[in-house]
Design a protein around this nucleic acid. Sequence first.
RNA 1: GCCGGGGUGGGGUAGUUGGUCAUCCUAGAGGAUUGUGGAUCCUCCGACCCGGGUUCGAAUCUCGGCCCCGGCCCCA
Length: 410
Amino acid sequence: MLQKPRGTRDFLPDEMEARRHVEGKLRDVARCYGYREVCTPEFEDLELFTMRSGEGIIEEMYVFEDKGGRKLALRPEITAAVIRMYINEAKVAPKPLRWCYFADCFRYERPQKGRYRQFWQFGVELIGADTAAADAETIMLASDMLNATGVTYELKVGHLSFMKNLVKDLEPAMQRRVRAHLDKKDYEGLNATLESLNRMDLADSLTALVNTRDLVEAFEIAGAIPEKERFEQTIGSLDAAGVKYSLNFGIARGLDYYTGMVFEGFAENLGAENQILGGGTYRLAHLFGGDDVASCGFAIGFDRVMVALGDILPAVVPVVGLVCTSEGRTRALVVAKALRDAGIRTEMDLMGRGLGAQLAHASKTANFAIVIGQREAESGQVTIKNLSTAEQKTVDLAAAIAEVRAFGPR
RNA sequence: GCCGGGGUGGGGUAGUUGGUCAUCCUAGAGGAUUGUGGAUCCUCCGACCCGGGUUCGAAUCUCGGCCCCGGCCCCA
């Protein structure tokens, strides 16, 4: 039997309902903040991604050549494409731009819990606002979105300048290495690296920095940071807004294009892949030939959120199984149309089953049975049966519709 | 790419000193029951992940591959 490609998933109706439900929550919050949805191509020029992240990422992407010999790649993330679109289409739009997206991405990686080769991200990009207020709004939005899903998580906020300031005298390659050690809390590796550089004097302050959760202390450790005032304002806004977070100056993010504030979210009850959100301020547009616009954004790992949420009870919406005899079928079609026009999910027999069998099927798939036989066809009324209580009565169509509509959790 | 554990009808399962027609539950279709469901009974449908090897004979042993689950690496 043909199998689906490795790292991909099929979603049955129950699961799709749950996913759409959570996606809708995220979208609602983003909309309330003024973020409007955009959509970019599923695949782009390979160059878009290599310019952003280096040639090394080719190994982790789905890369192919089309019939015109173009080098293309399935998008491994969306931010680069959004910024490309901004440069192509919206450079002169009034700032700031508030955009969001919900889209699938592709990475050629080893699948494991919460990691798939096709996965969905819900992301947000705030373009053209280079202020503490912009940074704070982005984090607040992230917090509200995760809260809306109901996932249990921890939000960590940091700033790259603290660590950069401590290691600014090192070679860029060594800076990156030190940051990598700290990101992984690999203190042995850190010491080995510092020792080889003869810079053991940095060890204490670096470890103190990644361990402190206090802003004042962080400034004392890191020294003069140009963005001190802005970050203080950002944090002040978060506190004023009641955002729950912890400070963490060990966040390095993988990429060089992040410029200042960075933040990450981690879910509980996930395996090794427990990061569900990542973002920060960045400058990317100049790489693609645009102005050097400041941006701030984040992406939520939608599939991981779904894994962390576990089983979600499907929404309770009434379903009507329309049961009819052959004499009642013409009238039943009219009734079905009326129910559907009223927005009620209505299913009719397609198997040529008898009344009893139709009812048996309805009992598995519906909350109400509406029976149309010869008697109902002649009287114009309908017989409605509540399939969980077995109560049955014959009433006008309008009354039946009202009863179905009244169904729901109390 | 690396390490460990797995793969039997749609779902869940039994089945190794290799040996009749591969077990059971559930789901699905039909019937007993052509104006009232969930019970019961009967019938039907439907599987040993793929390929090579050993063997008279492989779900079972062996090798390779594919896929799944966890972890490592990586994580834009």
